[in-house]
Measured scan of single mutants.
Amino acid sequence: WLKDDEATHCRQCEKEFSISRRKHHCRNCGHIFCNTCSSNELALPSYPKPVRVCDSCHTL
């Protein structure tokens, strides 16, 4: 799980985070992405409801 202060850019699109481009953790891989690159939800065994995942984890 990557800490918020360790990420300054989206792991996928590499756009810089700002007040309007917020950080979101993928609940599967733990990396930090922008909203555009992590707008999917997936049912994971460790969560009772579908949770936010990055595009890469969603296509696995």
Rank of each mutant, 00 (worst) to 15 (best):
H31T: 04
A43L: 13
S20D: 14
R21A: 11
H24R: 04
H24D: 06
S56D: 14
T8N: 06
T36S: 15
E6D: 10
E16M: 05
E6I: 12
C34D: 02
E14V: 04
F33Q: 04
C26E: 02
K23M: 09
T8C: 05
K3S: 03
E14G: 12
K49C: 09
L2I: 09
S56M: 14
D5W: 03
P50R: 08
H58D: 03
R11K: 15
C57D: 02
S46H: 12
H58V: 13
P48H: 07
L60R: 11
Q12Y: 06
P45E: 10
C26K: 02
L60F: 08
H58G: 07
P50I: 01
E41A: 08
N35I: 13
T8G: 10
P50E: 10
N28A: 11
C13T: 01
H31G: 13
K3Q: 02
Q12H: 06
F33R: 02
K49F: 05
N35C: 15
C26F: 00
D4A: 03
H9I: 07
T59I: 11
I19A: 08
D5P: 03
H31C: 03
H31V: 02
R22W: 08
H25T: 09
K15D: 07
G30E: 06
R27K: 13
K3L: 02
T8Y: 05
C29A: 00
R11T: 13
L44I: 10
C13L: 00
C37A: 05
F33L: 03
V51E: 05
R27N: 12
I19W: 01
N35F: 10
S56A: 15
R11C: 15
S18R: 06
R11N: 10
W1A: 11
H25G: 14
K49N: 12
K3E: 03
S20P: 10
K3N: 09
H9K: 10
D55N: 00
I19K: 13
S18H: 04
A43Y: 04
R22E: 12
R21E: 09
F17G: 01
D55V: 14
S18E: 08
S56Y: 14
N28Q: 08
Q12I: 10
I32Q: 13
K49Q: 07
C34Q: 03
Y47P: 04
S20W: 12
R11S: 14
H58I: 08
H9M: 09
R21C: 00
A7N: 07
H58T: 07
L2H: 07
D5M: 13
N28G: 09
T36I: 13
E14C: 06
C57T: 03
G30W: 07
L42S: 13
N35S: 15
P50M: 08
V51K: 02
A7L: 07
A7M: 05
H31D: 09
A43G: 09
W1R: 08
S38V: 12
S18A: 05
L60Y: 04
F17P: 02
P50Y: 07
S56K: 15
H9A: 14
N35W: 13
K23S: 08
C10G: 00
T8P: 08
R27A: 14
H25M: 13
E6M: 05
P48M: 05
H9R: 07
N35V: 15
I32S: 12
P45T: 13
C37N: 06
K23Y: 02
V53A: 10
E41S: 08
T59F: 07
C57V: 02
P48G: 10
I19F: 09
A43N: 12
D5L: 03
E14A: 10
P50N: 11
R22N: 06
R11M: 15
R27P: 15
P45R: 12
I19G: 13
R21Y: 01
D4Q: 07
F33G: 03
L60H: 06
G30L: 09
G30R: 04
T36Q: 15
H24W: 06
I32G: 14
H9Q: 06
N40D: 04
H58R: 08
S38Y: 02
K49A: 05
H9P: 01
L60T: 10
C13P: 00
S20N: 12
K49G: 10
R22P: 05
D5F: 06
C13Q: 01
C13Y: 00
T36H: 15
R21H: 04
F17L: 07
T8A: 07
S39F: 05
C34E: 02
E6W: 04
C34M: 04
D4G: 07
P48S: 07
Q12W: 02
R21G: 06
E16Y: 05
N40H: 10
W1G: 14
E41H: 07
S18F: 05
R11H: 13
K23A: 08
S56G: 15
K3P: 00
N35H: 14
S18Y: 03
G30C: 03
Y47Q: 09
K3I: 04
L2E: 13
I32D: 10
N40K: 13
I19S: 11
E14I: 08
R27G: 14
K3V: 02
T59H: 08
N40W: 00
R27W: 09
A7H: 08
D4S: 08
D55G: 07
F17E: 02
I19Y: 05
C10Y: 01
S56Q: 15
S39V: 08
E6G: 12
D5K: 10
F17W: 04
L2W: 05
K49H: 09
A7F: 11
R27C: 10
C29M: 00
S18P: 04
H58A: 09
I32M: 14
P48W: 03
A7D: 11
E41G: 03
I32F: 13
S38H: 03
A7K: 04
H58E: 10
P48D: 11
R27E: 13
F17T: 02
D4I: 06
H25V: 13
D4P: 03
F33A: 03
E41T: 09
P48V: 07
R21F: 06
N40V: 05
R22Y: 05
K3W: 01
W1C: 13
R21D: 00
K49I: 05
C29Y: 00
S39T: 13
C34S: 01
L60K: 12
E41L: 08
C37H: 05
F33S: 03
